[in-house]
Simulated scan of single mutants.
Amino acid sequence: MSGSLPTAILVSALLKRVNDAGGMGMVRARGDAESGTILLILNEEPGASRLLERVIGVHGKPVFVATGPIDANDAGARDAYWRRRRSRDPDLWVIELDIASAERFAAETILDG
């Protein structure tokens, strides 16, 4: 991803923005500081979450794609999914966000970064 900011800086900026807005963000797994992939766990309503991954889209720009288990209420399946992904890709960052409009915060920070 030449021309983009290192992953560690994007993650740091995202966590700061979320925390400054009164939400909570945490790193569940730290990946490669320069070019690691980012997997987001978005907790926007009690008991339900969804997973998004930052990938390079068909036009060469970063985009989010939905990933993970279908049942948003199955925390065990969600955790098992990202742990399996992490075991195959140690460069993967796993970031959990607990704030309303979590996808908007992430898009403004790490897709434009």
Rank of each mutant, 00 (worst) to 15 (best):
M1L: 07
M1H: 13
G3C: 04
G3W: 05
S4Y: 13
S4F: 12
L5V: 06
L5W: 03
P6W: 00
I9W: 03
V11P: 13
S12A: 15
S12I: 10
S12W: 02
L14M: 05
K16W: 00
R17A: 14
V18T: 01
D20W: 08
D20E: 13
G23N: 10
G25A: 12
M26S: 14
R28M: 15
R28F: 06
A29K: 14
R30G: 02
R30I: 13
R30Y: 04
R30T: 15
G31K: 07
S35E: 10
G36D: 10
G36F: 09
G36E: 11
I38F: 07
L39Y: 12
L39G: 11
L40M: 09
L40A: 03
I41T: 05
L42Y: 07
E44A: 10
E45Y: 05
P46D: 13
P46E: 12
P46T: 04
S49I: 00
S49R: 11
L51Y: 08
L51C: 04
R54K: 14
V55A: 00
V55C: 01
I56L: 06
I56K: 00
G57V: 08
G57L: 05
G57I: 10
G57P: 11
G57R: 04
G60T: 03
G60I: 03
G60S: 12
K61W: 07
F64G: 05
A66K: 07
G68F: 06
G68C: 08
P69I: 05
I70V: 15
A72D: 09
A72N: 04
N73D: 04
A75H: 06
G76F: 12
A77Q: 15
D79I: 10
A80V: 10
Y81C: 09
Y81S: 02
Y81F: 15
W82F: 15
W82T: 04
W82V: 15
R83A: 11
R84N: 05
R84A: 13
R85C: 11
S87C: 05
D89K: 08
P90W: 03
D91E: 11
L92C: 10
L92P: 12
W93C: 09
V94G: 03
V94H: 01
V94Q: 03
I95R: 03
L97K: 01
A100Q: 13
A102Y: 05
A102G: 15
E103D: 12
A107G: 09
A107W: 01
E108Q: 11
I110Y: 00
L111F: 09
L111I: 13
D112G: 00
G113D: 06
